[in-house]
Simulated scan of single mutants.
Amino acid sequence: MSASFAKALEAAQDAAGSQNHPASTLYVVATPIGNLADISLRALHVLAKVDVVACEDTRHTQQLLRAYGLDRPNAQLLAVHQHNEAEAAQNVLLRLAQGERVAYVSDAGTPAISDPGARLVAVVREAGYRVLPLPGASSVTTALSASGMTGDDGFVFRGFLASKSAERQLAVQALAQECRAVVLLEAPHRIEALAQALSVLGQRRITVGRELTKQFEQIDTLAAQDLPAWFAEKPDRQRGEFVLVLHNAPVAASQGEGLRVLQILLPELPLKTAVKLAAEITGESKNQLYDLALSLKKTEAS
């Protein structure tokens, strides 16, 4: 164990030791996406307390636990990955039936988002056992927070696009019609192909997050059409794990329908409610409709 984590284990006991950690429970534990210091005190305490740790890769998880001074015998590590998740979930149920506490971790980040774990959680819930999530690191929210992406229309998590060229192109065509921000994931051996596919989106902005939270972290924002050249410029840019944020599409000018709907709704409803309904009815930007509503209100008052 690194000496730097000895105090963290003590702090974890102090912070979470008095909390309730029920038996016969599956604990879904987020782990760092790169920087080991991003582990939570609660996660350290639970990983020390549970009877067994189910994990995507037992070798990877053993190294992670060892870094924190939480070494476990191999018998207390249970492999649950995308190829055996349905079968392995039954082993987890047997453990829970015996009153054991089981933690589940993926290789990095929050399980069951783009990593295995969702089927395990579903099986455990269906069997009537409790699932207790421990929040923590996520490449999705990490990339979004550093992207500078604006807009209040939310975002779409798309994850990995298809590896086959034709299917990937169809997916990108669908993304071109999506006005909200979109979060994509990609592996290093496919990042060039993805960059080429996304380049058809022209001037739409994309934030590229590479090796997030790690020593060689890189975050840059550029136009989609410039992605292939950006990756080709320096070979190092093609290394590591990638999170890409396709920014929300520029808002087109109102075609008049939003104005007409607002003129009907504003006399009857509060401004924010009228804007929300107008956006749902017309599909126009909530931000633009809000500005238009304010303008209508000012004109009415003058």
Rank of each mutant, 00 (worst) to 15 (best):
L170R: 15
A8K: 13
H45S: 10
E300D: 12
A75H: 10
A16D: 08
K49R: 12
A137H: 07
N74L: 07
A278T: 15
L93Q: 07
V183F: 09
G256L: 06
E233D: 12
S139N: 01
A249R: 14
A187C: 13
L36W: 04
S139K: 01
R210W: 04
Q177G: 07
T221P: 06
H81K: 07
P22H: 00
G69D: 04
E257P: 00
G128Q: 05
I191E: 08
A166D: 13
A249N: 02
V80G: 07
Q177T: 15
Q225D: 05
T213D: 03
D152C: 10
G240H: 13
A89E: 04
A86D: 11
L78G: 04
A143D: 01
K7F: 15
P22C: 00
D51T: 05
A293P: 10
R95V: 00
R190Q: 13
T31Y: 01
A89M: 08
Q63G: 04
D14V: 15
K164M: 05
H247S: 01
R168L: 07
R168I: 05
A11K: 15
S4L: 12
P267R: 06
E233P: 00
Y104F: 15
Q62V: 03
A16K: 03
T142E: 11
A193K: 14
T282L: 03
I39Y: 02
D115V: 13
H60V: 10
A278K: 00
A54W: 02
R101F: 02
A12E: 09
G154F: 08
F160T: 09
N91F: 08
H189M: 10
P228Q: 04
V200N: 03
S114Q: 10
L26T: 03
A16I: 01
D152F: 05
Q63Y: 09
A143F: 06
L134T: 04
S199W: 06
L175W: 02
P116C: 06
V172I: 13
A229Q: 13
P250I: 10
S199G: 08
L271C: 14
K214I: 11
P267A: 05
L265P: 09
N35R: 05
R237L: 12
K214Y: 11
V182T: 14
D153C: 07
I113P: 06
L26I: 03
A197L: 11
Q238G: 14
P116Q: 08
L175C: 07
S199C: 07
I219R: 15
E85T: 09
G258H: 06
F242C: 10
L265K: 06
A176D: 12
D71P: 01
A86L: 12
D107Q: 02
I219Y: 07
A11V: 11
E268P: 00
Q82D: 13
R180Q: 14
A224V: 01
A181D: 06
I39V: 15
N248G: 15
V131T: 12
P73A: 06
L144P: 06
L96N: 00
L144T: 04
L265F: 14
E300C: 08
A79Y: 08
D226T: 07
S285N: 06
I264D: 14
D51L: 04
D152L: 12
A79N: 11
L36I: 03
E284V: 02
A143Y: 04
W230F: 13
T58P: 00
H247P: 03
C55W: 00
L134Q: 02
I219S: 06
N84V: 12
L246P: 07
K234H: 15
A15F: 14
P135V: 12
I219A: 08
K7V: 15
I206L: 10
N84D: 12
